[in-house]
Design a binder for these strands. Structure first.
Lengths: 365, 365
DNA sequence: CCTGTTCTGCGTCAATATGGAGTTATGGAG
DNA sequence: CTCCATAACTCCATATTGACGCAGAACAGG
């Protein structure tokens, strides 16, 4: 709901601080006059706000522009390097970490393989080492990381604990947010991998202009993430989108059937060359995906359906039959596109989640 | 997203007006001091706000309380009779209209039967007559009705047009919001019936403390409404929740099977007395419902699932097997309750929708 | 060194909110 | 009937915030 707190003068300052800061981040570097124009605030107000932000360390004055007419204007820039956030995918066979500054610019990636059968503590340790190596490699001291978010397959509750994992051995019950925070001595967050992927897609991918999005992650395992009104919808237990577990949907066996004797990539490759059996299998797989996807699409009626995960790389070979089957099943057929990202989607979404937390809690926006 | 407009002093006034007004409506009648205490605002501010609201006609001063110590306090009350809203269900075989004041207190009901095979213009005309009779009967002049909302089975797009109706002949393509507004010369709104029912349930029924709710309407036809974050989620085309159309779910035939040779009420009655065949049929029906409901529950992971519609009157005879089947199908099993309302649910939800519109647009909250 | 341009610094004004000092209206006790 | 306790009212002073306007400062170019 809407917050119902009395509004005094400090509320105005808060609102205008947020406004100014977001304008400054859009502009990169800007003069007071320019910020005043784009925000609709008076020059004076912008200056006061910027002074305060400067004292808090989020804004710095940069040397004036040269070679322009008139008195040189003071210029200000957002200190994106005032802090950092880290997003990490704790996957079935790899850990992917991304370190980003406060503008969300990723300045370092780090990736480590991890055995599919690794025990929870081994997987966590690998995630820890990968995350620390990511920060160290970029030359960022650990205390400068303000938030860490982790994504993993399985259901993650709102405290950041894996409450159910089917694919990873012993993973059920593992607390992920806690350790992630302790690695850097900051806030730790955790969420389901598909949920984070849809965040990434909405942030920087093909779903930027959609407000309701269903993201279907199709790979070794199938999962889904849902965005409602531009915000991640996780549900009471973080289980929103877990349609794959419904027997009638059959996502469980869909992948198994697809890759019976060869790798998924090979099947898609063969289908592309027109191999009858491969085409049939891809079509069958697309149909299985479509049943689950349509259940989500019928429930949510989204603006956009994004197909992600390893199998999304197959492109139209898979998208085309998926669209066809969806059109048969849905009353209101959404647009269907492939994910903009590859393996980075989950870590990138984790960065966004961490950034959301920092912007809300630390910058107080 | 969050609005990003510059905040000046008038924003404060707006915030505090909303705060004061909502407090006053909660309190019914209150003194300045009391309002100051509950809102956290100063007495002075509350007075200024109330003066302004008084001029606009929304607040009236009432005689002071007698027999209390100290100087009598001026008392104020919200003028719930400053305007009215009307909610109407345009159903398959009946029209139900409800007229409510600005507090949402329903002051008049009106109901008319309508043949299932009625042509669209006949149905609309019946709805018009019923709505006008409802207002006339309560002695409320038509110009005092500020908003009208209509609910109907089928998919209703955001312009208030029925974009797809399976149950009502010729109903597809009919504009409902437009005519509804013209009946009273005010704003007209329209939405799907299950969507409105979930609003009613969240407003005054059993879902008041839940923020994510799935409402399953089980009657002559099955439909669903979804509440996310306390707000109605309708989707891009208003088709959110239309899971029943998915063949694998089979809501289409579920009802047909249940009532093969007798009325639904009779089957439930028989099941209650232990009739083997009836129990089996109810169980089969519950399973069908559960498949669709679980698809929604898996997609949304709601706090609560409400069963409404005519069949909800059966109570535990239907709820118990529904719960059982849901528990088998869902990863995260929501609480399941029967709707608090009977036939009034949709009209009541329509009242809420109209009231939301009035509070947003007219009162400027 | 003058001129045109643009930004800065500062003073003024308006809207809103808060808090306190003193005043007023009422019920009840003597 | 008088006085007192009580609770609310009135009024004013003050603080915060933002908008606006004007004089002056800084710089480029001639």
């Amino acid at each position: 709901m809407t917050e119902l707190r009395p509004g005094d003068a400090s509320l105005l300052r808060k609102v205008n601080t947020r406004l100014t800061l977001s304008a400054l981040r859009r502009e990169g570097v800007a003069t007071l006059t320019r910020l005043g124009r784009v925000t609709g605030l008076s020059r004076q107000t912008v200056e006061t706000v910027l002074d305060e932000l400067g004292e808090r360390g989020y804004v710095r004055e940069v040397p004036p522009d040269e070679g322009v007419m008139g008195r040189p204007a003071r210029r200000f820039g957002f200190r994106a390097d005032a802090g950092y956030v880290l997003g990490v995918e704790v996957g079935g066979d790899a850990i992917v970490a991304a370190l980003a500054d406060l503008n969300g610019e990723v300045i370092a990636w780090e990736r480590t393989g991890v055995p599919g059968g690794a025990a929870p503590h081994e997987r966590l340790e690998a995630a820890r080492r990968t995350s620390l190596a990511c920060a160290d490699g970029a030359g960022v001291a650990r205390r400068r990381v303000w938030a860490v978010a982790a994504g993993t397959p399985g259901i993650v509750d709102r405290t950041g604990r894996v409450s159910l994992s089917i694919t990873l051995p012993g993973w059920t019950g593992v607390d992920l947010a806690g350790p992630a925070g302790r690695w850097f001595g900051c806030t730790g967050l955790a969420a389901n991998d598909a949920n984070l992927a849809v965040l990434a897609e909405h942030w920087r991918g093909g779903a930027q202009h959609a407000s309701d999005v269903v993201y279907v992650l199709a790979g070794h395992r199938a999962g889904a993430g849902i965005l409602i009104g531009g915000r991640l919808h996780q549900g009471r237990n973080g289980a929103a989108g877990e349609i794959g577990t419904l027997r009638q949907v059959g996502w469980e066996d869909a992948t198994r059937e697809l890759v019976k004797e060869s790798s998924a990539a090979e099947v898609f490759e063969a289908a592309l060359t027109g191999d009858r059996d491969a085409v049939r299998r891809v079509d069958r797989y697309a149909e299985r995906l479509a049943i689950g996807a349509s259940a989500l699409a019928l429930a949510v009626d989204p603006d956009l359906l994004v197909l992600g995960g390893g199998h999304a790389r197959a492109g139209d070979v898979l998208l085309e039959p998926l669209r066809r089957h969806l059109a048969e099943l849905c009353v209101s057929v959404p647009e269907v596109v492939a994910s903009t990202f590859g393996d980075e989607a989950v870590a990138l979404g984790a960065v966004r989640l961490a950034l959301d937390h920092v912007e809300r809690e630390v910058l107080g926006l």
